[in-house]
Amino acid sequence: MTISNLISPQLQHQMTLWRRDIHAHPETAFEEVRTSNLVAEALTNMGIEVHRGLGGTGVVGTLANGTGPTIGLRADMDALHMEEKGDIAHASRHSGKMHGCGHDGHTAMLLGAAHYLSENRDFNGTVQFIFQPAEENEGGARQMVEQGLFDLFPCDSIYGMHNVPQMALGKFGIRSGPMFSASDFFEIRITGKGAHAAHPQAAIDSIVAASSLVCALQSIVSRNVNPQDALILSVTQISAGDTWNVLPDDALIRGTCRSFTVQTRALARKRIEEVCAGMAKSYGTQIDLKYIEGYPPVINAEVPTQAAITAARTLVGDAAVNTDLPARTGSEDFSYMQQVCDGAYIMLGSAKGENDPPVHNPYYDFNDDALQYGAGYWVTLTKQLLK
């Protein structure tokens, strides 16, 4: 079935209105009150049962037709803390907040699919339309899961999607297995003994210890991790001292780890702990490590991934679907849902031209021409899984 058979000009227009309205009124993590009201009202008007409150501002719409399987379709709703610089009519009306990642488009596409399916109930089963708050850094998916998402709305499989302005419009990309990396963070405080810079023998130099520690951490990547796996260990901040002639008492190191498997993630943490302990002993300092586990890796399960591939190919043809998309070193809290329910996350090309601003750029704006492809994919996937 072609997109034109699924997404009418009227529905494309309505999705564009939703998308631009949400874009003009961006709301960040757990503050998506206006957005969730818009979503809930739209679903109610479609005759879809609505549940509110998971994750604070989350919305779940349930559309049942027959006794077949249950699938979950997820879209994120939150904006970013950043200033929009683009000159567009629907630009952000809230200073310091912007839909810079396309979640306005994700929300509109899922609403479009809900609208179509509510009017064309030629499927057998149940669709849970999951509108999630706080994907950006705050783990809204985790909160929805912990508050009973899959207890209240059990699913046989779960699906997510993200736009890619650097991928050709209407193309799809996916892979089985690791899709997005885990994102972890560390803060290391090295405490030595301060002294006059002219008398280093009186000090326990925290800066020298910190400098050695930065280099030693890189050996984890080169000497502890299997070369066929992947680990990114980046030191992003070093701070110590206040003036020219004082060796400071302490130094602070901050950074991030990105990994694609549970095993590599655990190894990285273990080795950082061990390297810190060894450096403390070698330099006579005290080293305190604070390790913060962020989002787990997104791992696409094989069966849902193949279902996603089939749906995308049905919609746009085999040539427009990359089934071996390189894993991405960003992170996505959809992973928390996948820890409970097998699922697949797919990327949708949304390019307007050759040099589109990337996501998280102040000039970025979701391409409305991509709305029909995203909504069409959701509808095709639903019809395929709920025959």
Rank of each mutant, 00 (worst) to 15 (best):
C101L: 08
D122V: 08
G177W: 02
E136L: 05
M179E: 10
K97Q: 13
M109G: 09
T107G: 10
A182C: 01
M179Y: 12
I174M: 03
A198C: 10
D122W: 02
G148D: 07
H81V: 13
K171L: 00
P133R: 07
S157R: 12
S176C: 13
G148M: 04
D151G: 09
P200A: 09
G148F: 06
D104L: 12
S95N: 06
G102A: 15
V145C: 05
T191M: 12
E135N: 00
I174V: 14
I88E: 11
H106I: 03
A197K: 01
L149T: 01
G194L: 02
F123C: 00
S181W: 06
T191C: 07
S157K: 11
M179G: 09
Q201P: 01
I190N: 03
D104Q: 14
R142Q: 13
M144K: 04
H196A: 09
S183F: 00
T126P: 06
M109S: 11
D87A: 06
Q166S: 15
Q132W: 02
F150E: 14
N137E: 13
E135A: 00
Q132I: 02
H199E: 13
L110H: 14
H106V: 07
N124A: 04
R93I: 11
Q128C: 09
I188N: 07
K97L: 10
M161Y: 09
T191Y: 03
P200I: 05
G100T: 12
M179W: 08
D184A: 03
K171V: 01
S118T: 03
K171Y: 02
S95W: 01
I130F: 00
C101I: 07
S92D: 09
G112L: 04
H199S: 13
P200N: 10
T107P: 03
Y159L: 02
K171G: 00
E83W: 12
M98F: 13
A182Q: 00
A141P: 04
G105H: 09
S95K: 11
N163Q: 10
G100C: 13
V145L: 00
T191K: 13
G86W: 14
I88C: 08
D122M: 08
M82I: 14
P178T: 01
Q132G: 04
V164S: 14
G148L: 06
G140K: 00
I158W: 01
G160R: 04
R93D: 12
G125V: 06
L152G: 07
Q166T: 15
S181V: 02
Y159W: 06
G194P: 00
E187K: 08
H94G: 07
A108M: 07
M161S: 07
G148T: 03
A198N: 04
F186I: 05
E187G: 03
S118H: 01
Y159C: 02
E146W: 06
Q166C: 11
H199T: 15
F180A: 06
N124S: 08
